[in-house]
Design a binder for these strands. Structure first.
Length: 567
RNA sequence: UGACCCAUGGUGUAAUUGGCAACACGUCGGAUUUUGGUUCCGCAGAGUCCUGGUUCGAGCCCAGGUGGGUCAACCA
């Protein structure tokens, strides 16, 4: 084997995350009969965001890679916070991302019966007790980070009494907050979560799935690991903040297990992105306070927001792939996400002409009543996408910033005396222009064209530095275009101790342009159709769009080295 | 003043598990280009938080620091 092929082989070898290494080790050791079974466990209390995408890609990705399965499980143990409306959106987002849980759609509430039985079992084994003290007393008795807790006077309650009380708790005999069920573990554990954690509380709100059946509901710690166990999950992947929960997770599994099978919890770093935040609670605030226009506002990091913005599932998966899984709490540059969409959209979407801020150009030597159809390649990256025809006449519109009366050095666009190519059509030369006397604004530019320079004509080998996009003034269609910028102007808006994140809201995060002109082929564009507006960026039809009123969202601009040079 | 976790170019990750610190993004140059896009080529940028130890050899193992994160909801 030559040195080169060895090198290539090494380079193409994907690096493996610590999680994958754990899984491989477990497989080698023959754990759980060599099964791999994961789960994605959202709480139905909000919309999924790109941070969830990171978890989804891992959970489903590991299952796929090792020939296992991944369940979808709604962690619905708190009826007061959860709503059905979120369930459908969560399912839609997971499917959109490209993953399939097949028939394995589960709910933690499916296990309320089993969980209750397990609680009864713990009570019988002297491992759980009913505590009658109010929340503040229990909390105070928990001790502090440096001091051990105090043992509750109810800890020594008899099994019979505990049993009786717990059943009655569930019959609705007691008020919310009057009693809880606690696991009997260790009040002096250095891990606060092991100090007789509350495992059941009384809640009288109806549950979206079980209705009025239950009056006691399990806490997260008493539901999650057990649900994993009931479903035969082998690897329970979650974010770093659950690390301290792992001893409790394992303790409960130890009480539950009857064979060699046991699920293993592994924690990885949460996704943080610059110039945004992932807290569901804060995202909800933005929606409620009208700082954004709903959960699917294209500035939101939610999956529905990104989808509306024009992101593809492929680009999100690619991004997730690029950032990896570690135990380091990183803050990822949103630039990498933008790179990922550009990379994807570049190869798959057609190029079109759209002028956001039109300036009229009259070609004085082009016959007034003549209209030509010029043929333009849809995507230079992909021949198979074919060509289209675009009408051309003596009046065209160009981007206002593509003309300058007094151009700086290296300005390759239109200026008095300068020549540019109108892409796919002719080379034109600027002879003069007309300004509004009062405002000083340029209102019209007069050019002459060189008939020998028609694209593809081959009768002239004239070259010019600049090529502009354009639309025929007489054929162009109107559109509204929404330009988005980052929602916050601080890299880490939610991480500033002394400042509320609202202080960093970017006032220019949305710019609406209502006077844009597009080439006529866009007339029948449908919501979510994606295009590259030549020289400008990637745009996606918004669902606000109607037959008479086209609306586009800018997904991301093209890289702009000229803009960089100007700075 | 506790327990647990973490620390590698600007950012995010990698390093065949103790053997020449690599990749991506970003940056800067150049070539190509009927998109100042794309593509291609190249430069710069860390000696791996600190101190010590083990070792022929340490980013990796050990000890002690420093810095950061998580944990004291009847939330998940």
């Amino acid at each position: 084997m030559s040195e080169e092929t060895t090198k290539e082989k090494e380079e193409s070898k994907p690096s493996i995350s610590f999680i994958e290494q754990f899984i491989i080790e477990d497989l080698k050791e023959g754990k759980n009969d060599g099964r791999i079974h994961t789960r994605f466990p959202p709480e139905p209390n909000g919309y999924l965001h790109i941070g969830h995408a990171k978890a989804i890609c891992l959970d489903f990705g590991m299952a796929q890679k090792f020939g296992g399965k991944c369940n979808l499980r709604f962690d619905d143990t708190n009826p007061v916070k959860e709503e059905v409306e979120y369930i459908d959106s969560i399912k839609e987002d997971i499917r959109w991302l490209g993953f399939d849980w097949e028939e394995r759609e589960f709910y933690a509430s499916d296990y309320f019966g089993k969980l209750f039985d397990f609680a009864i079992d713990l009570i019988k084994r002297g491992l759980a007790y009913v505590d009658d003290q109010p929340a503040d007393v229990i909390s105070a008795q928990k001790g502090t980070l440096t001091q051990p807790g105090v043992i509750s006077s109810f800890r020594k309650r008899s099994v019979a009494e505990n049993l009786d009380l717990f059943y009655r708790m569930n019959e609705g005999e007691f008020e919310e907050g009057s009693r809880v069920l606690r696991a009997k573990i260790d009040m002096s554990s250095p891990n606060m979560l092991m100090r007789d954690p509350i495992i059941y509380r009384i809640l009288k709100s109806p549950h979206h799935r079980t209705g009025e059946k239950w009056k006691v509901y399990p806490m997260y710690d008493f539901a999650h690991g057990q649900s994993d166990y009931f479903e035969g999950i082998t690897h329970s992947l979650c974010t770093l903040e659950f690390e301290v929960h792992r001893p409790l997770y394992d303790w409960l599994i130890d009480q539950l297990k009857t064979s060699d099978y046991r699920p293993r919890q592994i924690e990885f770093n949460r996704l943080n992105l610059t110039y945004t935040m992932m807290s569901k609670r804060k995202l909800l605030e933005l929606v409620l306070e009208g700082k954004v226009n709903g959960w699917d506002d294209p500035r939101m990091p939610t999956l529905c927001g990104l989808r509306r913005r024009g992101y593809t599932p492929e680009s999100i998966r690619r991004f997730i792939d690029l950032i990896g899984y570690t135990k380091f709490e990183a803050i990822n540059d949103v630039l990498l996400l933008e790179h990922a969409v550009r990379e994807d959209l570049n190869i798959r979407v057609p190029r079109v002409f759209g002028v956001l801020d039109p300036l009229k150009v009259t070609i004085t030597n082009y016959p007034r009543d003549k209209v030509e159809e010029v043929e333009i390649i849809n995507n230079p990256e992909d021949e198979s996408m074919g060509k289209r025809k675009v009408p051309f006449c003596n009046e065209v519109l160009i981007e206002r910033e593509d003309f300058m009366e007094n151009p700086p050095h290296k300005f390759f666009r239109l200026a008095p005396g300068a020549e540019v190519r109108l892409k796919g059509a002719y080379i034109i030369k600027c002879d003069s222009f007309r300004k509004n006397e009062k405002t000083g604004v340029v209102e019209e530019v007069f050019c002459t064209y060189d008939p020998a320079t028609r694209s593809g004509g081959g009768t002239s080998d004239k070259k010019v530095k600049g090529t502009l996009h354009w639309v025929s003034a007489r054929h162009a269609i109107d559109a509204e275009v929404r330009l988005y910028d980052r929602l916050f102007d601080h890299e880490d808006p939610a991480g500033q101790k002394d400042d509320d994140y609202r202080k960093f809201l970017n006032p220019d995060s949305l710019k609406i342009l209502s006077d844009c002109k597009l080439e006529p082929s866009l007339r029948f564009a449908k919501p979510f159709d994606k295009f590259q507006f030549q020289r400008l960026g990637y745009f996606c039809v918004d669902y606000d769009s109607t037959k008479d009123h086209l609306v586009f969202n800018r997904t991301v601009s093209l890289k702009d080295t000229w803009a960089k040079m100007k700075k």
